[in-house]
Amino acid sequence: MSTTQTDTRVVSPLLRIAPTGMYARRARMLVERSVLVSRKMWLIILSGFFEPLFYLLAFQVGFGKLVETVQGPGGQTMSYVAFVAPALLASSAMNGAVYDSTFNIFFKMRYQRLYEGVLATPLGPLDIAMGEISWALVRGVLYAVAFFAVVSGMGLVTSPWALLMVPVAILIAFAFAAIGMAATTWIRSTTDFGLIQLVLIPMFLFSTTFFPLSVFPGAVQVIIQIFPLYHGVELMRGLATGVLDPSMLGHLAYLVVLAVVGMLVAARRLRVLLLR
């Protein structure tokens, strides 16, 4: 049998862009593993829900008293808490996804050497990337639904469009999980996580989460609009208030592209790292 024969088998489009051996269509097996593990970590999973809730509470009783109203989408005046709530949903989707796809993945890759074991089976790097990102999304969905329930219970959303906030939260989580996982493959040691924080915290603080874009000087406004989270926040706020405009399609496209690129880069980098 010749070892250099060309491959003439028909492959699916996803496999055509990724080299063979990348994907065995068993990503769900990794999700199964995560579900098993999560039974022991329910407290941590539960805690992810409290973080945005603490913030919301602080805005309700504290910040909201210092600043009663701000200018919302479409120039209308709205209560400060209602202004912040959708942004908190967006940023908690981001934070949860990044945490899952950076710290957790790094530990599994470097210290636990989990993926070495997985790659000795028919599974490939794309299975790993998709499996782990899917799990981050499952958690993201849980958080988003719970937070949405609280926000609507407090009467902070005023439009039926707000129901779409949940799928948008999932998209945000997807995009950040994919990018986070890709970034993690470049991390050499735990001290490099500082760099991830270096990106994440300014994004969390300045993506019009806590105050409108107009507060920034003109040049800085342009930079803010490059932040992926800014687009997530804009989408959320528009949906929460029911003020829709065509620019939202642009925000949507930005996040979708980010998600797809992130996942492909992550799978490729995993191959470089683990299959060398």
């Binding site: 051996g21 065995a24 022991k40 636990q112 989990l114 074991g117 000795a120 089976t121 028919p122 490939g124």
Partner: peptide
């Protein structure tokens, strides 16, 4: 050929690596 049929070969292999990579969370 491992380059082409990696998953199909691995499906029939057993591997014991030099350092244990057991799943410590399970």
């Amino acid at each position: 050929d491992p380059d082409r049929d990696g998953p199909r070969i691995r499906a029939r292999l057993g591997v014991v690596p030099q350092l244990d990579n057991l799943d410590t969370e399970l």
